[in-house]
Design a protein around this nucleic acid. Structure first.
Lengths: 354, 354
DNA sequence: CTGTTAGCGCATTCAT
DNA sequence: ATGAATGCGCTAACAG
């Protein structure tokens, strides 16, 4: 932990016996520097551990604000509100460095709508975009085209791995699914009949969770039987309408009444909240172990009543935050390499922790 | 595209027929401005829609250095190394704002040594201190004296709640203990005989974990029996010597051989690592559920072999980071209220998540 | 009370 | 190829 204050370009210049102009030239390799001076400067930089002061940098070059565009489906207020928090945080931190954010949310997981959002962002003159791909591959060509056009894209929350996106910031969803399976096994003491409630699997993160869940369940808890996998997304345009959440709840109630000796439900996403509501309204909370994802508005209540037993959670706020920061780094210093795959660990939430 | 050429403080000054100094005064209400000029400036600000340039602001501000002191026991390299990471991060972020850090670690949980560290920090002219109290109340008077002397103190990781520290940044350790108990119950399927390995309980966070653990265990898993609570700290000066970690391992081996039908061990802190090593070396990994705290050097291996079943973890890096940031906020803008109790949620780690 | 001025660290001319 | 000088917008110290 160094107590020494930041070394400046001036000190580097003095150390290398050159002018700050020369230091600037080699630092931003603009050429026109003799080989020996260049070497001297580089040595000085290394020895003094010089790092440019970004604040001064952006002040001096009156940096035309670098604009970062962000788009994500703003469909479930609790989960996506955290994304907004993360953006706020990034904005607060990056604003002094001349960064400006432009946000365009979509109201569904519709692909066309997302393409339009991207277009809108581009028209606003953003220099880079952070997005949550609505499809695991149908957006590849679009993403590639943007990359081609000089607008790099970073994905977060869910990925589009075969595209030329710059990076992905999110959790390892296969492991999230495995973790959910382990929790299911523990809470059921290794046996019972369960159901899976999923939404459309074209969003990669959802599919990966299911894969992980099933794999883990089969290999470690052979006595737990998955009776059915329900798609509760209501078609391709999930969330296109107002009361989808209530619909999920009613659908769940109907399904729950169909099954006699059901002991568990795994829900692949934040709709866990509404599945939980259904179970509670039917009084099934004690004979059912619900394992799901994400904290939502009723989390506290549903966990306190032991309706939901465990949740595997992401931290969407931190993920956008890092996505935005990485984008800034890339835009500010394109030469510097960046974490291409930044995977965060999911988090387990049980009521003892609340 | 926004071509808004920002209006500057200079333009406001000209518009209001005053100097930029005066504008600055009313903008940051430092007083000493006549009522009419103040009014004129405010009008100009409103009319020109002036907004201060944050970049220039922080560039200019970084002259007034504020020194923040930090002290913590640097006794177990893995856990406390993360604290250093957090400090580095805070330093990197706050340095452009003129903040300087001074760190003094202690090599034990000895109280006198901590008092000396505090003294050293004070002598270096720090404006505020972040610390991990070595005792839940014996440091109260010292902390109060520092507060009295105008050097505010923020505690992190562990608290000294009856002192006049400004704030505490850390997890809720009672809940951490309860969570550990729940996990123990789940992994043992509700019954069995267990042991508790603790270190000295004068460090509040340890005591709270034990309290939480026992309370939860008794109320929810009455068929789990705690056979004994071992103090593996080796007296008041835990960690004062080189090989304490190996000693813990050997001690554990001896204890393990004493108990016949032992099914679980709860370890109150990061010594879980060495308890795990002992269990593994004796080949006990399959007949024993070990629940503990914190990730350490062997976490991956010990979990992969199912020696350690679950860990309840903190994020010490984030906790110092916030402690430092809060301290900065307090020092920079004393009038602004701050989060007095910032409790983070602990995190559960199981091998599926690794 | 008020105005003037010297930097903050860097980029960018403009001379040499 | 190199160095010196100017200024980005603001804060703070210093004169009045």
């Amino acid at each position: 932990m160094s107590i020494d204050k930041k070394t400046t370009i001036r000190e580097v210049a003095r150390f290398a016996n050159v002018s700050i102009g020369t230091v600037d030239r080699v630092l931003n390799n603009r050429g026109n520097v003799s080989l020996e001076k260049e070497k001297a400067v580089k040595e000085a930089v290394a020895k003094l551990q010089y790092e440019p002061n970004r604040v001064a940098q952006s002040l001096a070059k009156q940096r035309r604000k670098v604009k970062i565009g962000i788009t994500f489906p703003d469909v479930e207020r609790y989960f996506w509100a955290k994304v907004k928090d993360g953006i706020d945080r990034a904005e607060k931190e990056l604003q002094p460095l001349g960064v400006e954010f432009v946000v365009h949310t979509t109201s569904s997981y519709n692909i066309e709508e997302q393409v339009n959002a991207l277009e809108a962002l581009k028209n606003q003159g953003v220099h880079g975009i952070c997005m949550v791909p609505h499809h695991f591959q149908k957006l590849n060509s679009t993403i590639d085209a943007y990359a081609e056009a000089g607008i790099p894209i970073i994905t977060f929350i869910s990925d589009s791995p075969e595209s030329r996106r710059l990076a992905y910031m999110g959790v390892d969803d296969v492991k999230s699914g495995e973790t959910a399976a382990k929790l299911m096994g523990l809470y059921l003491k290794g046996k019972g009949k369960i159901l899976i409630f999923a939404i459309h699997r074209e969003v990669l993160c959802i599919d990966e969770r299911i894969q992980g869940f099933l794999h883990k369940l089969h290999s470690e808890f052979p006595e737990i039987e998955v009776m059915n996998v329900y798609d509760v997304s209501g078609g391709n345009h999930l969330y296109d309408y107002e009361n989808y959440q209530d619909d999920v709840q009613h659908l769940t109630e109907r399904i729950l009444l169909e099954y006699e000796d059901l002991q568990g439900i795994y829900v692949t996403n934040s709709l866990t909240n509404y599945v939980g509501r259904a179970a509670l309204s039917l009084g099934f909370q004690d004979k059912l172990s619900i394992i799901g994802h994400e904290t939502t508005e009723d989390t506290r209540h549903l966990m306190a009543t032991n309706t939901i037993d465990a949740l595997v959670c992401q931290t969407p706020d931190i993920e956008v935050y890092y996505a935005a920061k990485q984008m800034y780094e890339y835009l500010a210093v394109p030469s510097k390499p960046l974490n291409l795959k930044f995977k965060r660990r999911s988090t387990i939430l049980i009521n003892e922790l609340l």
